[in-house]
Amino acid sequence: MSTKEVLLEVKNLEVAFGKGKSKFQAIDQVSFQIYKGETFGLVGESGSGKTTIGRSIMRINEVTGGEILFHGKPINGKISKDWDREITQKIQMIFQDPMASLNERAKVDYIISEGLMNTKHYKNEEEKQKKVHDALLEVGLLPEFASRFPHEFSGGQRQRIGIARALIMEPEFIIADEPISALDVSIRAQVLNLLSNLQKQKGLTYLFIAHDLSIVRFITDRTAVIYKGKIVELAETEKLFANPIHPYTRALISAVPEPNPYKEREKVMEVYDPTQHHYDSNPPSFVEIEEGHFVLANEEELERYRTTLKIGV
């Protein structure tokens, strides 16, 4: 683990909305590292704060506490103009709803090249055109689509445009916020394949935000489960699915419908009851319970988790 290069590090991140009485702590002391070249999954229900984390890495949401480090250097707070520009270019985002995230009044050409124009990341008009041309080809669209409007495309094609818009900036790190939730089953597969091929070709690192665990299991290397602004479990994806420890993770995994009618009918759902923790008297910490497998628990719970881990339930 330690030999891997850390690309992005989130340290004790806190995000709060509102002030005074109406203050809402959306993210509470979240820390994780993302290694270069991996796909890191962030799973949770709506309202858990997974998108807020993505948005604070994009610097859309203001951070109220903690640090975000990219290549070991902070990206929020007071930073130099050059570094600021570099981050804007190196970190890109793919949005959830391809119907809402493209400017309806702009042509594809403009949508894709807008980022380039803002950062002046090209020498002349010709080079810009070539970059748009290449980006379209890379995501499996025809270059002549550049002169069309978003409404002329299907959902899957629109999502490809969204990916091209991120790629043209030559990013190192892409935040994909539920990139396939709004798509049909067969098109999901196409977009997933596209994302993983691009990762292989360009050595990209992804932060993959999703609530569909079957897809997270397929595409990510490591996964963090987030509940109400706190990470409750983090491990290599296979380890997490084979051996979920935190009760919330277990509930989440048990809720995923499987494509097997026999199993589905027999299955007993686990329900997560947050009142089962006694954190007032015995506060929890984020502990490494086996190599690379972290869980949020207090001492008493840890003991219980350790025994279940040994038995291998």
Partner: peptide, 8 residues
């Protein structure tokens, strides 16, 4: 369109 839902 979700076969998982159908199975249930």
């Amino acid at each position: 369109h979700d076969l998982g839902v159908v199975a249930k």
